[in-house]
């Protein structure tokens, strides 16, 4: 059985308190983010069921929401998640080549994670940064004006920082 720490439970209470009484379903998105952070970077069915029980929801209501948003991971992901935009403007600027290139460099297909657990490649719909196409989201930041060279640099940097932090 998974369970938030006392401290995190307090945080959950605070989130719930932001919304009117009886509307605790509104707290679902932030609580899911917190749960993803706390329980291994992804939302297992067990994690989602736990969130449902915290908020007094049916589990199906949590699945419905969690499966909708691309920022919730429904499978374990690597330390670095590349979410490359594949909507119109980025595609016209060559994001499909970028996706292909990242895949070749890392030896994975979109939706997969490298065996060393470092990288996950995902495709995403418009992230609202069409002016900097092609682009991708990595963690909380954007990497913009992507080129093959830039992708190489990003991958190298990630590897370096992973090595240091380990």
């Amino acid at each position: 059985m998974i369970k938030f720490s006392e401290e995190k439970l307090k945080q959950v209470e605070k989130i719930i308190a932001r919304y009117p009484e009886g509307k605790q379903k509104s707290a679902l998105l932030p609580v899911l983010h917190l749960a993803q952070q706390e329980f291994g970077g992804w939302l297992s069915p067990e994690t989602m069921d736990y969130v449902a029980s915290l908020l007094g929801l049916l589990t199906i209501e949590v699945y419905e929401v969690a499966t909708f948003y691309s920022m919730y991971n429904l499978k374990p992901v690597g330390k670095y998640v590349f979410e490359v935009c594949q909507t119109g403007p980025c595609i016209t600027r060559g994001s499909d080549d970028i996706i292909k290139y990242i895949g070749e460099r890392l030896g994975i297909k979109p939706g997969e994670t490298t065996p060393d657990g470092l990288f996950t490649l995902k495709t995403a719909e418009c992230l609202g940064a069409c002016g900097y196409a092609p682009m991708m989201q990595m963690g909380k930041g954007f990497k913009e004006h992507l080129t093959k060279e830039k992708v190489d640099e990003i991958i190298e940097e990630c590897r370096r920082s992973a090595a240091i932090n380990n």
């Binding site: 049916l58 199906i60 209501e61 699945y63 419905e64 499966t67 909708f68 948003y69 691309s70 719909e125």
Partner: peptide
């Protein structure tokens, strides 16, 4: 009903 829903996106 409670047990039919929609999942995922696009």
């Amino acid at each position: 009903g409670k047990d039919l829903d929609v999942f995922a996106a696009h």
